[in-house]
């Protein structure tokens, strides 16, 4: 009798996979994301929150947001989220890559970290590797094709790994189409993500130095860069400068007149996959966002860009996907400085 019942059950489960998934899905009701800064900063933090929210909506899962968590020990926040019923914690900052795995081990609640493949553990810790340098390479290519003055600037709000990878990728892309370009690199200050005034000053300086395309990596501070370019373009309407943003999509803002493109980070598909992994019991590996799966990609320009140039960018993308082009992945500040010196010794 028992064997009969279990056989029937097995047949039912096999024949109706949706039933299986429905049973597994009962496990995941709520996911949470922890971000160091405000979820309204139109950048890093907001992107993570918005993407997870979108993923949650698609799956019908609750999403909790713990923002402004800073870089203190977030363990109690994680505990609080778990107490509220979160089944998965997304630790959306490279600074959390140590504390979150430790929490996962002690609490048994799975976490997602970024940029720490060594921390991966089956069923407990998954890692997102963002190959942003690939998309940044494409941005560099576009910049090299579009620059009229031959001078391109990178302005960063500090030198965390996330920015560093993109800086190098961008430089390599620029070098591939315009090795004689002048590349200016300027860091506003350590951790100056919100230093909008500093960003504006620095951007004005690089614009004065002749840059007509600015690749700006900053969160709240990016608006300072945007204002500097707006100002500049008003004064020099004949030779306007353009802006390349990162992470988010600002094409609805006042920047739209000169937003060349943006290195978009789209976590939605990644989050969907991670939640699915958890449900399937295959959680605990490194998930990559790259140009192939469009986890990172270039925002299509709304301003005038020639068809040829954009086509060339697409071709380059194909080459990266196929492996014909490899983009260096350099995340430490010293490495960045050295690589930039190699590529553009005269800058």
């Amino acid at each position: 009798m028992k064997r009969c019942v279990s056989t029937v059950l097995m047949i039912v489960l096999l024949a109706f996979p949706s039933l299986h998934i429905a049973m597994a899905q009962a496990d995941i009701d709520r996911v949470a994301i922890i971000t160091p800064a405000s979820r309204t900063n139109q950048a890093w933090d907001q992107q993570g929150v918005d993407n997870l929210t979108a993923a949650g909506e698609e799956l019908g899962i609750d999403v909790e947001v713990a923002e402004n968590a800073g870089y203190e020990d977030i363990t109690p926040i994680l505990q609080d989220l778990v107490d509220d019923g979160s089944d998965l914690l997304v630790c959306h900052a490279s600074g959390y890559q140590t504390v979150c795995p430790e929490f996962a081990e002690s609490s048994g609640v799975p976490v997602v970290v970024i940029e720490n493949p060594g921390a991966v553990q089956e069923g407990l810790v998954a890692d997102i590797e963002t190959q942003a340098q690939e998309a940044a390479y494409l941005a560099g290519v576009l910049a090299g094709l579009e620059t009229k003055t031959g001078t391109v600037a990178i302005v960063v709000t500090g030198e965390p790994p996330t920015w560093n990878y993109m800086t190098v990728g961008f430089a390599e892309g620029l070098h591939s189409v315009k090795p004689d370009a002048k590349l200016l690199y300027n860091s506003i200050g350590e951790g100056s993500y919100d230093d909008a005034a500093g960003a504006k000053r620095v951007t004005e300086t690089v614009l004065a130095a002749g840059a007509d395309i600015v690749f700006g990596q900053g969160d709240g501070a990016a608006w300072g860069m945007i204002q500097a370019i707006r100002d500049h373009n008003e004064q020099h309407a004949d030779a306007p400068a353009k802006f390349i943003d990162v992470i988010g999509d600002k094409s609805d803002s006042e920047a739209k007149d000169f937003l060349l493109t943006s290195v978009l980070f789209d976590y939605t598909a990644t989050y969907l996959q991670l939640i699915d992994d958890l449900e399937q019991g295959t959680f605990g590996s490194v998930v990559t966002m790259n140009v192939e799966n469009n986890g990172v990609r270039l925002l299509e320009p709304e301003i005038d860009v020639s068809e040829e140039n954009w086509a060339q960018v697409q071709e380059t993308r194909e080459k990266i996907v196929s492996g014909d082009i490899t983009v260096s992945a350099i995340g430490d500040a010293d490495g960045v400085h050295n690589r930039l010196k190699e590529l553009f010794p005269d800058s």
Binding site: N186, G189, E190, T205
Partner: peptide
């Protein structure tokens, strides 16, 4: 002096941006 820090980053001088700040 603040501006000088930014300006010096644009030169060939190889000093860390943090120290220039």
């Amino acid at each position: 002096l603040r501006g000088l820090g930014s300006g010096l980053q644009l030169t060939r001088w190889d000093v860390s941006p943090d120290l220039l700040q």
